[in-house]
């Protein structure tokens, strides 16, 4: 971990003291430093966002035909689009479950290594490897793992004598979403583990030592001492993981394409489908989905920050 946020805030406040002029610069200098970033950011991030909002109120048809439809896209979306609501509920389930498993699974792994498991320094590096893999790689590998005929999942079940549980994991609506979720968690567990491990090593040793002396059980130690002390890290990771999962696209697109029977359709895959797969060629409706979803994400971030962070707010 670099230097903690508190320190940086302290440094900033400290240097806010009126100095000679090293903190001042002519407008020309500012422009030269900021312009490249601002221009490219404005042109290819802010403008697209605004244009998406504009699109959401229009029907964008082939050959440059643009029709104003007002709230038409939104009313259709909210009132008549059953696939959208299916996608919303799938995304919600995916986000909530994956976030919790990711963060607390990561904590568990970190605790294992923190408890001086053999080869901990090496395992730390090995367990992190899936984080570096692209979704394309992870997706394809897990599609193979779930393959009915020769996949690893069924082979392991078979080997364990649990042949009765062999099934087409991605082919049944009741298992498809959880199967994709497992692949997603597999990729990200190492990430959360590393962050927790860093936080654990930053804990003051005396506190843990004191708990040891009190003959505190490991569970009690975890619940009463470690978790409260890691609160900031946990909150940080929950929010981060939550945002990431609300936008999940790549892995699902590669593994199931949203099927079977829309059981893995997420908002992101649905946006893509409506834009480029359906036979409508209309960019307005999918833009409306993206806009609505963005507003929901923002609302969730606001609520989570308020609920979980209390005093320590998002840093920027």
């Amino acid at each position: 971990m670099s230097i903690s946020g508190r320190l940086s805030r302290f440094a900033r406040r400290n240097s806010a003291r009126p100095e000679i002029d090293a903190r001042r610069a002519g407008i020309g200098i500012l422009v030269v430093f900021l312009a490249p970033a601002l221009l490219i950011y404005a042109g290819f991030t802010i403008y697209p966002v605004l244009r998406t909002f504009y699109n959401a109120f229009h029907a964008i048809k082939p050959h440059g035909v643009v029709e104003f439809v007002g709230l038409g896209n939104f009313t259709a979306l909210l009132l008549a689009d059953s696939i959208f609501w299916k996608a919303v509920s799938n995304t919600a389930i995916f986000t909530i479950v994956a976030t919790i498993v990711d963060v607390f699974g990561g904590l568990l792994l970190a605790l294992c290594l923190f408890a001086r498991a053999p080869l901990a320094p090496l395992l730390r590096v090995v367990w992190f490897t899936p984080v570096l893999m692209s979704y394309v790689v992870v997706g394809i590998v897990w599609v193979w793992i779930y393959d009915y005929d020769w996949g690893l999942a069924n082979a392991v079940l078979h080997w364990l004598g649990l042949g009765a549980y062999e099934q087409s994991w991605l082919g049944h609506p009741s298992t498809a979403l959880s199967s994709v979720l497992v692949a997603h968690v597999w990729k990200w567990l190492g990430f959360n583990m590393i962050v927790f491990l860093a936080a654990l090593h930053a804990l003051p040793a005396e506190v843990l030592g004191a708990a040891e002396l009190d003959n505190c059980g490991w569970l009690a130690k975890l619940v009463y001492i470690i978790i409260p002390m890691l609160r900031a890290t946990i909150v940080n990771l929950l929010v981060l993981s939550f945002i990431g999962k609300m936008m999940v696209f790549d892995l699902i697109w590669i593994m199931t394409g949203g099927g079977p029977l829309w059981s893995t359709e997420t908002v992101s895959t649905y946006v893509y489908k409506r834009a480029f797969e359906w036979n409508t060629f209309d960019l307005g409706y999918p833009s409306a989905i993206a806009v609505l979803w963005f507003i929901i994400i923002l609302a969730f971030i606001a609520i989570m920050t308020r609920l979980l962070r209390q005093r320590d707010r998002l840093e920027f």
């Binding site: 009915y148 087409s168 082919g171 079977p260």
Partner: peptide, 8 residues
């Protein structure tokens, strides 16, 4: 149909 009909 095959068991892996949905993904085949």
């Amino acid at each position: 149909y095959p068991k892996n009909f949905m993904t085949l």
